[in-house]
Design a protein around this nucleic acid. Structure first.
Lengths: 112, 112
DNA sequence: TGTTGATGTAATCGATCGATCACAACAATG
DNA sequence: CATTGTTGTGATCGATCGATTACATCAACA
């Protein structure tokens, strides 16, 4: 299968700012204006301007989902540590040292 | 390659309900209680109970992100339709033949 | 210079969030 | 039956959301 690999650009979402950057980058790649995307997504241009700029963590899920959809983006979730994800290998895991401990912690809680 | 397929647990996020299901499933896979996860994520158990049950689209991004993180989940975004709307023609206006009819494409996708 | 287009900004307003505390339902266990 | 643990619920409260409308800035262009 590996259909996912064909898309090419895969971006890790770890914070609101990440989503903001992804949205803005994607919009620009598509050559769309903020007004265009806002209308497509059914959100106010004001919101898009704000979110692209600051990526507020208080933004509502539904609003973001609509924009994601309007930009023809797909979002996937998967276990972070236990798996060696080749797709995300573009970025070195060294960026997230803390996640390793968390995994061990969770595992310990589970098995005892 | 398709190393990603080995995880077996890649879930597409297309709606708030999807996230709710992912969170609940992941939590149970980890053998954690709602209280455990809530405390880890720094959210109220009340919120987790509600969100797992209904997956409200009004949930705030930051809250969800904290839970996602507490559950050791990774989230990735990538272009959905495989359209090669490419960075190559990004600079060119809509007049450029190199650009895909994203407008029509998106409209079709959204409008149904 | 004047026009067009994209982007960023302000003030306000109804609606909803998420936190908190206590309790009820339910299962499992002794 | 009594206890323990997990989950779901109610009511309330401060804080924030997102929409709206109009204007300012900046760049491109004839």
């Amino acid at each position: 299968m590996c259909t996912i690999a064909h898309t090419g650009t895969i971006m890790r979402i770890a914070s609101a700012s990440d989503i903001a950057a992804i949205i803005r980058g994607r919009r620009q790649d598509l050559g769309l204006t903020q007004g265009e995307v806002a209308q497509r997504a059914g959100v106010s241009r004001r919101w898009l301007v704000n979110f692209e700029a600051s990526g507020s963590t208080h933004a509502e899920l539904g609003t973001i989902l609509r924009v994601i959809d309007a930009l023809d983006l797909a979002v996937d979730a998967h276990p972070q540590s236990g798996a060696s994800l080749a797709v995300a290998s573009a970025k070195a895991p060294a960026d997230d040292p803390g996640t390793v401990d968390l995994d061990a912690l969770l595992d310990g809680l589970r098995g005892g």
